[in-house]
Design a protein around this nucleic acid. Structure first.
Length: 295
DNA sequence: GTATGTACCTGTTTGC
DNA sequence: TGCAAACAGGTACATA
């Protein structure tokens, strides 16, 4: 499940190996991953052929490769996507969706988009070299030097939505997925259903700090991997899952207090938390009826 | 603008 | 053994 650290690992890998390479040919093996490109698979391939890759950039979980004509190849790994660099003769992966032949890449390898569940995808963004307009709404992530922590704290504390839902809102702060949201909440001893407007500024600040710390730690270890779905640009698995305290540990003792970690349904997925360290918030009291104002 | 719920997608696991 | 349901979850979109 690629989250920000995994995507950054891919970005750095691509930067090392494909910068300055020219796209020779593009084969779309399944139309779904290029669904966001309105030109269709053939138009997508045509728009890329002959273009040179000038950079490799990232915002949150989106990656884009600025091209020499001002457009960009925009990508998202979704749930199960991988960007692999393989020798042209390597056997096709089972879920190979798009093959991009490069000239001038290290050892003339080809770039492959492999995606089992196809939540991810690629598209050509017109004029998107600096920042693709398709992702202009995606907020900066906590690792971005221009991340405005004070502004995020203010926004969180203006909303009544639960703090976990806010952490996952890519328009507010990007790059945080289910795994790192649970991990940051565990570290901060905050329950994910606590309303943002019931948290102190210091609590929100601490939580964002933990989110950043856990992602930096994962980055240092090459990203998280729970199964073979995610591997970095060279096909090597990360191994950060050994360091998680909450996510995926239902029934195991909390490493701080020993209470069994609980799993609850949340937005069609799961939340993991320690019921002792992260107490379930009490229900908000009903607003007192406003007194009628005399004219 | 905010809050909330759901569709999308497929391989694996679980339950009857 | 065989089939169906549940599960994983980031994002866009619909609705109120």
């Amino acid at each position: 499940m690629p989250e920000l650290p995994e995507v950054e690992v891919v970005r750095a890998g691509l930067e090392r190996h494909v910068l300055g390479a020219t796209i020779v040919r593009v084969d779309v093996l399944h139309p779904r991953p290029v669904r966001r490109d309105l030109r269709g698979p053939a138009g997508f391939a045509e728009a890329l052929a002959g273009r040179r890759i000038d950079a490799v950039r990232r915002r949150g979980k989106y990656l884009w490769l600025p091209l020499d004509n001002g457009d960009a190849l925009l990508g998202h790994l979704g749930m199960s996507g991988q960007l692999l660099l393989q020798p042209p003769g390597a056997p096709d992966e089972r879920h190979l969706r798009v093959r991009i032949a490069l000239d001038g890449a290290d050892e003339d390898r080809e770039l492959r988009f492999v995606d089992q569940r196809m939540f991810g995808g690629l598209s050509v963004s017109a004029g998107g070299a600096d920042l693709p307009p398709e992702i202009a709404h995606i907020a900066r992530d906590p690792l971005d030097p221009e991340f405005d922590e004070d502004a995020v704290v203010r926004k969180v504390r203006r909303r009544s939505s639960g703090i976990k839902r806010q952490l996952l809102d890519q328009n507010l702060v990007s790059g945080v997925g289910n795994i790192y949201a649970d991990e940051a909440l565990w570290r901060a001893r905050v329950h994910g259903e606590r309303p943002g407007d019931r948290l102190t500024a210091a609590q929100v600040r601490e939580l964002l700090g933990h989110a950043r710390d856990v992602m930096v730690a994962a980055l240092g270890q090459g990203g998280t991997s729970f199964d073979a779905l995610y591997v970095n640009v060279n096909g090597e698995s990360g191994y950060f899952d050994r360091s998680l305290h909450a996510y995926g540990r239902e029934g195991e003792p909390c490493e701080r207090c020993g209470t069994a970690v609980r799993r609850v349904a949340f937005m069609n997925r799961s939340s993991y938390f320690c019921p002792t360290c992260q107490p379930v918030p009490r229900r908000r009291r009903a607003r007192p009826q406003a007194l009628p104002v005399p004219d």
